[in-house]
């Protein structure tokens, strides 16, 4: 075995043990790639900064956000996001008045269409925000949902 080969092995071993060490430090997160800082953020700007490295969003009607005007049950608020923007990399959904505003982020793989429908929890009346990331920046739309019964403390 040459000096270089040995060196490579040593490095691999080091990297391996480093990985195990990091995993042990994160017992609440199974995947290191789950964006913990973004999900723990307590305001939308902090969440976007942690998740996308930027919170300079441009409001755009090209982001088609569908939510009900009134949600009787804050525990089940339907949200649909769709856009005609090209080259969409991800769609992110936030509920700005929730304790942790970031609800979910959907990376849009190459063959996928920029369309997502799901249901979210809202603690109280507030804005739902959809942020679409493209190579040209962040585009967003918001809509207010009147929540009759909050969906987080129940």
């Amino acid at each position: 075995m040459t000096e270089t080969q040995l060196d490579t092995k040593r490095r691999l071993l080091l990297q391996g043990s480093l990985g195990v060490g990091l995993a042990a430090l994160l017992p609440t997160s199974v995947f290191a790639n789950w964006p913990q800082d973004a999900f723990k953020a307590e305001d939308k700007d902090g969440a976007l900064q942690a998740l996308l490295g930027n919170n300079a969003v441009e409001m755009s009607d090209a982001v088609d956000l569908k939510v009900p005007d009134i949600a009787e049950n804050g525990a089940q608020v339907p949200v649909t996001v769709e856009t005609e923007l090209a080259g969409v990399e991800s769609i992110t959904i936030l509920a700005t008045t929730n304790q942790n505003p970031l609800i979910a982020t959907f990376n849009i793989p190459e063959v996928a269409l920029p369309f997502i429908a799901t249901r979210i929890k809202m603690a109280e009346t507030g804005d739902v925000m959809a942020v679409v990331k493209t190579a040209n920046g962040l585009f967003a739309n918001t809509k207010t949902v009147q929540v009759t019964v909050g969906g987080c403390g129940t």
Partner: peptide
């Protein structure tokens, strides 16, 4: 091929519903 790749918080409703297209 990946058609869905998403990260969630507990802010997604109980008994989650998700729809996507490719």
């Amino acid at each position: 091929q990946k058609v869905l790749n998403t990260y969630w918080s507990g802010g997604i409703s109980t008994d989650p519903y998700i729809s996507f297209k490719f």
